[in-house]
Design a protein around this nucleic acid. Sequence first.
DNA 1: AATAGTTGATATTTATAAATGTCAACTATT
DNA 2: AATAGTTGACATTTATAAATATCAACTATT
Lengths: 147, 147
Amino acid sequence: MTGSKTSDDKPIYSISAAAKLLNISVHTLRMYEREGLIVPFKKESNQRSYSQGDIDRINCIRNEINASKISINGIRTIYSMIPCWDIVKCSKKERGKCASFNGSDSPCWTYDHSNNVCGTKNCRECIVYSQYSACCNVKELIKSLSK
Amino acid sequence: MTGSKTSDDKPIYSISAAAKLLNISVHTLRMYEREGLIVPFKKESNQRSYSQGDIDRINCIRNEINASKISINGIRTIYSMIPCWDIVKCSKKERGKCASFNGSDSPCWTYDHSNNVCGTKNCRECIVYSQYSACCNVKELIKSLSK
DNA sequence: AATAGTTGATATTTATAAATGTCAACTATT
DNA sequence: AATAGTTGACATTTATAAATATCAACTATT
């Protein structure tokens, strides 16, 4: 991670500014969102904003796509393996009714979770999304679970 | 898993028989091997053989590629997340010098491991390869690590 | 010893994921 | 109120992963 969470999570870029910074089109940014890879900040008017943390994250995603040749569906599947239940201390009972725990091809932040331990929490602010979602970090996370 | 390990792991198919059964070309089978997804049985003459377990496994891989749209590099990366160190009870000390534990883009069975806990064991016969390598099972495996 | 199948290496084809373009309705900015 | 940027939906392009083809050397089978 570069910088602290707070300094990285201010919504400072519009979609076109972010696209220019990343050297991609705005369409691509919307696609990544539709595919469940990113959760940009949204204004009341429904317009997207991106923080420096988002830019870092998207650079990581682009590296997986372009250099590591992992498809978007592959990245989504890898994200879905993040043991969020362990990170957010989800109870056995809660896990039972959690779509993320029970499914295996989409990350937790793509599901509605109004009736589990995550409640109405904004996924952007959740450590699962903000810290562990550099795909290259997922294996490290799995290692840390080992006895 | 269909059937027991022993009954599924007899080398009964030649590469062309396996290809016909799977409705793909022999080239594709060799490609999957080169890409680190499968480890077929090899005769002294260097010719490949495939067991029923191999066929099941390859069907699973093809489903990931064709239906789930996960690229070969994505599948390999997912395989590399299998916590083999936990499954084979690899000591802390052994982990330190293990390429699989320390890398993150290729599964353990693609590395030389003559000088760690796996020694000269044939990966085909290792539970990590034979049981946990249906990509769809990896998340289940991660779940089982949770406290 | 002749035929069929295999090997690895290199080249080519094809299928499609990823990215971009276009549009009309809408929102923000000057 | 005029200009610039955004939205989602749908269509199109392009980049390339996945699969197949070709080859000469080799191995198995009859």
